[in-house]
Structure formats: structure tokens, C-alpha cells
């Protein structure tokens, strides 16, 4: 399972980077989405894939049962997803405005501030 996920992660990174190297602003966003999801999946995989219970303390008990999953990566992924969501929302607005200001979604046209 971990090997399969490793290939999926690799595929997501590759597809994300490939999309970002196209000359289209919308593909740039899609590439970033794929890339950040690849990173989230990597966090998930790296913490170890084990068949386990949800990390909830049963009523009456005072600690997690030993068969529970590690809750930390889940918290990390949730945080990363939320941050990614906020940034992608901002990026959408930014690209929308940029396309209006530049008049095209071609990345090669976005070069007037380069040196």
C-alpha cells in the first residue's frame, strides 16, 4: 500500500510541476493544487500506514487504546489543507485580476516587471 501511495505522490508532484511549467495562468493554479495535495498525501503516508482505530478516547477510559491511529499527522494534514484552501482562494482572485489587467492568461505576457 505504501508503495502504491508513493507512486501516487510522485505522480501528483510530477503532474503539478508539469502543469506549472505550462504557459497558462489557470494551469498554474491547478498545478499548485495538485502539488499541495501531493504534499498532504506524503504527510499521511510518511506517518506510517497501519490498520487502526480512529484516535478517540472511549467513554470512561483516560487514554487512547494501543490500536488507535496516530492523531498527529491527521491534525497536520488538516492544518495544511486549510492553509492551502486559503491560499488557493487568494490565488484565484489574484489570477482573475491579473487576467483582467493583462488581458491574456499567457504567462509569457506577465513579464513587464522582470529584469
Amino acid at each position: 500500500m505504501a508503495t502504491l501511495l508513493a507512486f501516487v505522490i510522485g505522480g501528483l508532484y510530477a503532474a503539478g510541476l508539469y502543469l506549472m511549467m505550462r504557459r497558462n495562468l489557470v494551469k498554474l493554479i491547478l498545478g499548485l493544487v495538485l502539488l499541495s495535495n501531493g504534499a498532504n498525501l506524503l504527510l499521511f503516508t510518511m506517518a506510517g500506514l497501519t490498520p487502526a482505530q480512529p484516535p478517540l478516547i472511549p467513554p470512561g477510559a483516560s487514554r487512547l487504546s494501543t490500536s488507535a491511529a496516530d492523531p498527529l499527522p491527521q491534525a497536520l494534514i488538516l492544518t495544511a489543507i486549510v492553509i492551502g484552501f486559503g491560499i488557493i482562494a487568494f490565488l484565484l482572485v489574484l489570477v482573475h485580476r491579473t487576467v483582467h489587467a493583462v488581458g491574456t492568461d499567457d504567462l509569457d505576457a506577465v513579464r513587464t516587471t522582470d529584469t
Binding site: L25, S36, A39, L42, L91, T98, A101, T113
Partner: peptide
């Protein structure tokens, strides 16, 4: 806007590396 597109993109890639 043009500067921001590059700044945001590069920094997002950097964040992905960080997270990895």
C-alpha cells in the same frame, strides 16, 4: 499583480518543499 503572481507561486512551491 504581475509581481504578486510570481511571488505567490514561488513561495507556494517553497511551502510544499517545507511540508514534504
Amino acid at each position: 499583480l504581475e509581481g504578486a503572481v510570481k511571488y505567490v507561486t514561488l513561495n507556494l512551491i517553497s511551502s510544499t518543499f517545507f511540508l514534504t
